[in-house]
Simulated assay, not measured.
Amino acid sequence: MTPFRECIEQSPRHDQVIRDCAVLIESFLTNAGGVRGFALRSAVQTAQRKRPDLLETASRRVLPECLDALDPIYQIWDVDTHEDFAVHLVDIHGNRAQQAIIAVIDRRAQASNHRMVQSIYGRMRDSAHRDVERVLPDFGRLLADELALQTQRA
């Protein structure tokens, strides 16, 4: 089976998938409540003043690593069963998928040269599992929709 990353990156809609991921992140930030949500939104808004394309750029950089991390789950998905990929990812392998995505984010945060990114992530890390759990269904749907479109084109 083709690697998951390759499936998405070779899609004619790859740039749209990146934009959709940025919208997903923006929606997550908008809906994040409380003081923590306010802190996240403020940090991102501050960074966006210098880089208006921040969320799209971040999506372009992080998505390939997330797809690589999710590849083992993708490889055991059997498209012929007509099981929806979002169901496969979220309902059947949700915990494994969350751990894979968090591992990617942890590595990215550790490797960052920006102290502000490391500081903010360090303070928010304890709730990362809950955050990924909240966004995983929408992320899974986004990926499933793209895979479905590819199947229709084939």
Rank of each mutant, 00 (worst) to 15 (best):
P64Q: 13
P64Y: 07
P64R: 09
E65C: 05
E65R: 15
C66L: 14
C66H: 02
C66A: 14
L67V: 06
L67M: 00
L67T: 00
D68F: 00
D68K: 13
D68I: 10
D68V: 09
A69C: 01
A69K: 10
L70T: 00
D71N: 07
D71H: 06
D71A: 02
P72R: 00
I73F: 01
I73C: 03
I73R: 03
Y74V: 01
Y74R: 07
Y74W: 14
Y74T: 03
Y74C: 01
Y74D: 02
Q75V: 02
Q75F: 04
Q75G: 01
I76M: 13
I76T: 07
I76A: 03
I76K: 08
I76N: 12
W77S: 06
W77P: 03
W77R: 06
D78V: 10
D78A: 15
V79S: 15
V79K: 15
V79H: 10
V79F: 13
D80M: 14
D80Y: 10
D80A: 12
T81Y: 12
H82Y: 10
H82K: 12
H82E: 15
H82I: 06
E83S: 11
E83Q: 15
E83W: 02
E83V: 14
D84H: 11
D84Q: 14
D84M: 12
F85I: 06
F85K: 09
F85T: 04
F85E: 08
F85M: 09
F85C: 05
A86P: 06
A86M: 09
V87H: 11
V87R: 14
V87Y: 08
H88Q: 06
H88P: 00
L89Y: 07
V90D: 12
D91L: 14
D91P: 00
I92W: 12
I92Q: 15
H93I: 04
H93E: 06
G94E: 01
N95V: 12
A97D: 07
A97C: 11
Q98K: 13
Q98A: 12
Q98G: 05
Q98I: 12
Q99F: 07
Q99K: 12
A100M: 05
A100Q: 03
A100H: 04
I101L: 15
I101T: 05
I101Q: 04
I102E: 11
I102H: 01
I102M: 14
A103H: 08
A103R: 15
A103F: 01
A103M: 07
A103T: 09
V104D: 11
V104P: 07
V104T: 05
V104L: 12
I105G: 01
I105K: 04
D106M: 04
D106V: 07
R107P: 02
R108P: 01
R108H: 10
R108C: 14
R108G: 04
A109N: 03
Q110P: 02
A111D: 09
A111N: 07
A111L: 11
S112C: 04
S112W: 03
N113D: 14
N113V: 09
H114W: 12
H114C: 13
H114E: 15
H114G: 08
R115M: 12
